[in-house]
Amino acid sequence: MGKMMSTLLGLLSLTCQDTSPLISEMMDHRVSFIKRLKIKIHLSMCEVCLYYKKQLEIIRGLSKNLGREDFPVKANETLPQESKQKIKKMIEANK
């Protein structure tokens, strides 16, 4: 029984190198049950990969927020003055 368990665990064990792409892939679609199980087992033993998973979640949250229509505009991200004048003239002419 003990031997069977260790063989089974061997089949299910992943390295960090194997786990890293799977953690990312898991964010993009529902991965198979066996993959999820393998990731879960690895994460239960590997704190560093848990940090990695959290880093990707932080990047995801930031990215989503960055894409908002109302995200504050910094001084170097404003529509250049010449463009503004040009568009205003265009609007005036096409009204």
Partner: peptide, 16 residues
């Protein structure tokens, strides 16, 4: 109010 578009939304739309 098309006259206000550029001043109101120009920067937001450009950054986006």
């Amino acid at each position: 109010d098309a006259n206000q578009w550029v001043d109101r939304y120009g920067d937001l739309m450009y950054r986006y």
